[in-house]
Simulated scan of single mutants.
Amino acid sequence: MDIVEDRAATARAIFAGLCASLVGIGLARFAYTPLIPPMIEAHWFVASDVVYLGAANLVGYLVGALLGRPLSRRYGARSALRAMMVLTSLAFFACAFPLSVGWFFVWRLLSGVSGGVIMVLAASSVLPHVPAARKGMASGAIFLGIGVGIAMSGTLVPLLLDVGMRATWLGLGVLSLLLTIASWACWPHAVHTHPPVGQAAVTMEAGARSELMLLYVQYALMAVGLVPLMMFLVDYVARGLGWGSHEAALFWIVYGVGAMIGPMAYGWMSDRLGASATSHLMTWLQIGAVVLMMFSTHHLVLMLATLVIGSYPPGVPPITLARLHRILPGDAHGQNIVWSKATTVFALTQALAGYGYSYLFAQSGGDHRILMGVGAAALAMIILSDVARKVLAKPLRASL
């Protein structure tokens, strides 16, 4: 009976994590993308303001990544996560009333803050309650919410838009509130962690420092690599390839399907192949898919490439978490600190990359392939950094 109860409690905790990532990131960030043209057409805001308001969520995400641990220490992770889901729901309701650009910016910023806090705290609150052999799959299930949100942005949002712009924002608010209520009692109680003490902890930290630095660098490069097609896929298909907005919407749905498959697939692979091997394979798949997007015009090939590319944004966090747990085994306190730092690095790099790609896009006269090339180069640097680490490690081992 205890085993059954433990499994049920674990399942409830994972469900809560999935709901949080769906509300705070999947819907709060990605549901905004298909709303951009209708908001302009409905004269809610001019085009330049809509782009500016979209960036508010990324800025808020960075702020949230920095606030996650302080909020957890002061109020507890359960209370902080519940509050962030409520805040996201309120932001959706507030955005149904475009009183001014400033009003809208504040609520988009706050929805980004919620997403950043959720990214830092959700997995670290749930995974301590999951058996070690299932952490990869559990982590994938938590971040599956991001993929579901991306898929909904291509399916549910267009259906809501048929009713009206205000009804769309209100509908997203109702959905977020229902998910918040459904997960309210499912959050597990915090597992109290304490900083390790003594010489053994110092030795472990020194031995892991280089691997952690590599993890930070590679996580940042992953952010640079995923941004181009996350931002410009729809525009590339519609205008770059000249296939029109209907075909572009279809590609975004395929991207969303990939986003739903990625977290669970990569999490499953991580449990069986190991986090490092899965990360390596995932990066090679992404490079191949981006190259196909750059040079192929075959419809089916581009669909398959889009499916693989869509798996990457929500697939990166669970793999990075699995690598982190391997570097700092059994040190929950250290894992939480490093995950918070890694999320901050990712958020900052993603925001800077977004602005950088936008500038490069404008300066290149709207050349999507240049952006994809930069993204592929960032991904290739991940592979090269792994090779460099192995080469540098050989002389070190030989000298020991």
Results as ranks from 00 to 15, higher is better:
Met1Gly: 15
Ala9His: 06
Ala13Lys: 06
Ala13Cys: 04
Ala16Val: 06
Leu22Thr: 05
Val23Tyr: 02
Gly24Phe: 11
Gly26Met: 06
Ala31Pro: 01
Pro34Tyr: 02
Pro37Ala: 00
Pro38Gly: 12
Met39Ala: 13
Met39Asn: 11
Ile40Gly: 15
Glu41Met: 10
Ala42Pro: 06
Ala42Cys: 14
Ser48Glu: 14
Val51His: 10
Tyr52Ser: 12
Asn57Arg: 04
Val59His: 14
Ala65Ser: 06
Pro70Ala: 13
Ser72Glu: 13
Arg74Met: 09
Tyr75Trp: 14
Gly76Phe: 12
Arg78Leu: 06
Leu87Ile: 06
Leu90Ile: 08
Phe92Ser: 02
Ala94Ser: 08
Ser100Thr: 09
Ser100Gly: 09
Gly102Ser: 08
Val106Ala: 15
Val117Phe: 12
Ala122Trp: 05
Ala123Trp: 03
Ala123His: 03
Ser124Thr: 12
Ser125Phe: 02
Pro128Cys: 06
Ala132Phe: 06
Ala133Leu: 13
Ala133Glu: 14
Ala133Met: 12
Gly136Asp: 03
Gly136Met: 08
Ala138Gly: 04
Ile146Lys: 04
Gly149Thr: 08
Met152Ser: 08
Leu156Pro: 00
Val157Thr: 09
Leu159Gly: 13
Gly164Ser: 07
Arg166Tyr: 00
Ala167Ser: 13
Ser176Pro: 02
Leu177Ala: 14
Ala185Asn: 03
Pro188Tyr: 12
Thr193Ala: 15
Val197Asp: 14
Gly198Phe: 11
Glu211Ser: 14
Met213Tyr: 11
Leu215Asn: 04
Gln218Ile: 14
Gln218Trp: 05
Ala223Gly: 11
Leu226Trp: 05
Pro228Tyr: 07
Pro228Lys: 15
Met231Ser: 09
Phe232Arg: 11
Val234His: 15
Ala238Leu: 03
Leu250Cys: 03
Leu250Thr: 12
Val257Glu: 02
Gly258Pro: 02
Ile261Leu: 15
Pro263Arg: 05
Pro263Phe: 07
Met264Leu: 13
Ala265Met: 10
Met269Leu: 15
Ser270His: 01
Asp271Met: 01
Arg272Ser: 02
Gly274Val: 04
Ser276Cys: 04
Ser276His: 14
Ala277Arg: 09
His280Val: 01
Leu281Ser: 08
Met282Arg: 10
Thr283Cys: 10
Trp284Asn: 08
Trp284Asp: 10
Leu285Ala: 10
Leu285Gln: 02
Ile287Tyr: 04
Ser296Trp: 01
Leu302Cys: 11
Leu304Ser: 07
Arg323His: 04
Leu324Thr: 09
Ile327Arg: 01
Ala332Pro: 00
Gly334Phe: 14
Ile337Leu: 07
Ala342Asn: 05
Thr344Cys: 11
Leu348Val: 09
Ala353Gln: 03
Gly354His: 06
Gly354Trp: 03
Gly354Lys: 10
Tyr355Lys: 04
Gly356Ile: 00
Tyr357Phe: 15
Ser358Tyr: 01
Ser358Ile: 05
Tyr359Trp: 12
Tyr359Gln: 06
Phe361Tyr: 13
Gln363Leu: 08
Gly366Trp: 04
Gly366Tyr: 03
Asp367Cys: 04
Met372Arg: 08
Ala377Gln: 01
Ala378Tyr: 03
Leu379Met: 09
Leu379His: 00
Leu379Glu: 03
Leu384Ala: 15
Ser385Tyr: 02
Val387Gly: 01
Val387Trp: 10
Lys390Ser: 14
Val391Asn: 07
Leu392Lys: 15
Ala393Met: 11
Lys394Leu: 15
Leu400Thr: 09
